[in-house]
């Protein structure tokens, strides 16, 4: 299927607006890492993945795991825009009784497959989802987005070994490699390089792309689908806070929501009405 890159770009811009709108209203949440993953999630949900928001438990569906669960606003934005729940829920993020919790919770949010938030656990869950689909001969493909800082967690590498050992080729992971974690750059806090070689040596097919190039994301996801006998890792080089100039590459925006003033400036940059 041919991708409409211009249309996807427009959707991604809307997703960024939604993320910031959610965050300014909640007053807390993770801005930088939601914006860095936006283009990836946009292509997944509006080009690649097969799902039915009217039937969230459709047995043949593709499945998504946001292993870096703090990027929840980005996930909620695409799920809302995809039709899993009404857009009015965006205004309830992180508020008492909301279906949009601080981190993804499959028990309360339609379209969320597993619980994440405590880092490092998503790839194992994705393996389970993919192996179950294989046992049942379902066409389901499983996608997991991991944070780069998240790969400090040992469980990620346990899971990486399992994916390769069981030749889980209906699994595609994407590393949101924005280079920053809470306490500073990856290089300062915990160097994850050489990241491409690491994943290759763990038995994965590795594709390296610019994680904000819609066409590149499309091509990488299509290539991943053709790889048989091993899992695919797309190393997506991204920019934390992407899309809002004063948030880009700023570690300060990891775990804080925009102020009202910052929000207004961001909306102008994004051309929101």
């Amino acid at each position: 299927m041919e991708a409409d890159v211009e249309k996807l770009k427009k959707i991604a811009r809307q997703i960024r607006i939604d993320i910031l709108t959610m965050l300014v209203e909640s007053g807390s949440g993770h801005t930088g890492g939601s914006l860095s993953a936006t283009d990836i999630l946009t292509v997944l949900y509006f080009y690649k993945m097969r799902y039915d928001p009217k039937n969230p438990k459709w047995e043949e569906r593709d499945k998504f795991v946001l292993s870096k669960g703090h990027g929840a606003p980005a996930l909620y934005a695409v799920l809302g825009r995809a039709g899993y729940f009404g857009l009015e829920h965006f205004h309830t993020l992180r508020k008492l009784g909301s279906i949009l919790r601080g981190h993804p919770n499959s028990a309360v949010t339609p379209g969320v497959e597993v619980c994440t938030g405590s880092l490092g656990q998503g790839l194992s869950q994705a393996n389970g989802l993919a192996l179950a689909a294989r046992l049942d001969n379902k066409p389901t493909r499983v996608y997991a987005v991991l944070g780069d800082g998240e790969t400090d967690e040992g469980q990620v590498w346990e899971a990486a070994m399992s994916s390769a050992h069981y030749r889980i080729d209906n699994l595609c992971a994407i590393l949101d490699n924005n280079g920053l974690q809470i306490d500073g750059t990856n290089k300062e806090v915990m160097n994850i390089e050489p990241v491409v070689e690491k994943w290759k040596s763990f038995g994965w097919h590795v594709i390296e792309i610019n994680g904000h190039d819609i066409k590149a994301i499309v091509d990488a996801l299509n290539e991943a689908e053709k790889i048989k006998g091993k899992p695919t890792m797309i190393i997506a080089h991204t920019v934390k806070g992407k899309g809002v100039s004063f948030m880009e590459n700023k570690v300060e925006y990891h775990g804080v929501a925009p102020t009202r003033d910052e929000y207004e400036r961001a909306m102008k940059e994004l051309g929101a009405n």
């Binding site: 499959s106 597993v114 389970g128 179950a132 346990e158």
Partner: peptide, 23 residues
């Protein structure tokens, strides 16, 4: 049957994934 190797954390996560898929 899935031997997950000496990795209990991965095993529990994988089990959760299986359960999420109805196993």
């Amino acid at each position: 049957f899935f031997n997950m190797g000496v990795s209990e954390q991965d095993m529990m996560g994988t089990a959760a994934g299986f359960a999420s898929a109805g196993k």
